[in-house]
């Protein structure tokens, strides 16, 4: 059978999700953000949440997330997404409120807002993209940058004596009584993408069921910032990142 015979709407098993807008993303080729955006768009459609979802966009590479997923959005100041989401959720409890944040937004400038929203058990889902670097500003050190990792501000590699330790904030969040589900996933292979999708689905379900705060960390890549090809970045992530940020559920209540 020739491809032209197979390519028929009746045989389609995978299509671009309806809730992704038509615009091309500004992300670099191979960026993990695009995969996570696609998963979210798929889930919002499959779960029938299109009319009730409000996303909170961060400051960082994902600042324009609102241009790509076709639901209501609020763009927060740097690090304040959990505070913004707190009000969105408390004032519109019927809605699904989720934040989408990078490591700088969530684990550096917004640490207080992250921890306190999670500790209050706000009924929100936090999607946390950890690529161990500041992508948007040109590849500087993030709170999650690994020891020895080179960035624009750690040109000779991160040193504990100069820069402190990588912050494993997801482990911290798992210890808070306000969180109901804390998991660490990746999107570098097809099976990983399937698992990550299930995790985000669970986080959305928890938020709708008012079970408290769910945190889904996606251990990601920034091939531009890491100065690798996308495939090399995936490999480096799987080898080095998961050592410090091991994949799997940290909490599931």
């Amino acid at each position: 059978m020739k491809p032209e015979e197979i390519i028929d709407p009746a045989n389609r098993v995978y299509a671009r999700p309806r809730l992704l807008t038509e615009v091309n993303t500004h992300y670099c080729p191979g960026c993990s953000h695009g995969v996570v955006h696609r998963i979210i768009a798929e889930l919002l459609d499959e779960m029938g949440l299109e009319d009730r979802a409000v996303g909170v966009a961060p400051v960082g590479c994902a600042v324009f997330a609102y241009n790509y997923i076709d639901v209501d959005w609020v763009e927060a100041a740097h690090g304040r997404a959990p505070a913004v989401a707190t009000a969105l959720s408390r004032l519109s409890p019927e809605n699904l409120v989720f934040t989408y944040q990078g490591d700088g937004d969530l684990a550096a400038i917004g640490t207080a807002e992250t921890i306190h929203a999670a500790n209050r058990g706000e009924n929100i889902a936090i999607i946390f993209i950890n690529n161990a670097i500041y992508g948007m500003t040109g590849g500087q050190m993030a709170p999650t940058t690994l020891i020895g990792q080179r960035t624009a501000t750690t040109p000779y590699g991160r040193r504990v004596d100069l820069n402190g330790h990588p912050l494993n904030i997801t482990n911290l969040l798992a210890q808070l009584p306000g969180t109901c589900y804390v998991t660490r996933q990746s999107v570098h292979t097809a099976p990983a993408v399937r698992k990550a999708k299930n995790a985000i689905k669970k986080a959305f379900e928890n938020a709708m069921a008012k079970k408290g705060t769910s945190v889904v960390e996606i251990v990601s890549t920034c091939n531009s910032g890491w100065k690798m090809t996308p495939a090399q970045a995936n490999e480096w992530m799987a080898t080095h990142m998961t050592e410090h940020y091991p994949l799997g559920d940290l909490k599931n209540e």
């Binding site: 059978m1 020739k2 491809p3 197979i6 390519i7 028929d8 045989n11 389609r12 098993v13 995978y14 299509a15 671009r16 999700p17 992704l20 091309n24 993303t25 992300y27 080729p29 191979g30 960026c31 993990s32 953000h33 695009g34 995969v35 696609r38 768009a41 999107v187 570098h188 292979t189 097809a190 993408v193 399937r194």
Partner: peptide, 28 residues
């Protein structure tokens, strides 16, 4: 592009890892 179309089994792996949602998959 499909350089070796005969090999495709429609498993969707390509579409799942695609950051730009530009792949559609068909299977029979």
């Amino acid at each position: 592009y499909m350089s070796n179309p005969d090999a495709c089994i429609g498993c969707c792996s390509c579409a799942l890892v695609c950051p730009d949602a530009c792949i559609e998959v068909y299977r029979v």
